[in-house]
């Protein structure tokens, strides 16, 4: 069982291989369509993002509301390709790991390689189980976007599969 904890270490990332099942514990930031759009508006306006993205993990998810008695709602991955246009810029800014589901385009894959970052996929449709891995959550930006706001999550043993590793191996059968 491969465990990954944050802060991320480059040596650990370099050892990951496409197809590895890993369990992540630590800090993860969320962002999907609307949050990406807003981050880019912020970048263009003020030159900075609402959080320091260097060495961080970004998870593409729009959770369901948190019911009483739970730490978080259901929280499985959303389709990555809609974020492809934004991703290389974020990788250049130091983002190190992305968790989502589905194909990435070549520009994103090349940018991942160049920046020695990795793309992992979480299991689409395992939202309840993935939501239960979230021990703590806090909205840190764009609260008005509801499920599309940026959350800072503390996760424990969050399962994901390495899809594109730092050597350019792809776990998807294409």
């Amino acid at each position: 069982m491969i465990q990954i904890t944050t802060p991320l270490k480059q040596e650990v990332l370099n050892q990951l291989q496409a197809g590895d099942l890993v369990f992540i514990s630590g800090t993860v930031y969320t962002a999907r369509d609307a949050a990406h759009k807003r981050m880019f508006e912020d970048l263009n306006r003020s030159g900075s993002l609402p959080f320091d993205i260097r060495n961080q993990i970004l998870y593409y998810v729009g959770p369901s509301p948190t019911p009483p008695g739970q730490n978080f709602g259901s929280a499985g991955p959303t389709t990555a390709s809609r974020m492809d246009v934004y991703t290389p810029t974020l990788l250049e800014l130091g983002l190190k790991m992305i968790i989502a589901k589905g194909y990435r385009n070549d520009t994103v894959k090349q940018s991942l390689l160049k920046n020695q970052a990795v793309y992992l996929v979480a299991i689409g449709g395992a939202g309840a189980m993935l939501g239960k891995c979230v021990k703590n959550s806090e909205i840190i930006a764009y609260e008005e976007l509801g499920p599309e706001a940026i959350y800072k999550l503390e996760v424990e043993n969050f399962p994901a599969i390495v899809c594109w590793d730092t050597k350019g191996n792809d776990a998807y059968i294409q």
């Binding site: 709602g73 299991i123 939202g127 309840a128 189980m129």
Partner: peptide
């Protein structure tokens, strides 16, 4: 996941 969802009354998928 289906068990976790029903036990916690969380939707199976977000």
């Amino acid at each position: 996941n289906s068990d976790t969802a029903s036990e916690n009354r969380l939707p199976m998928c977000q």
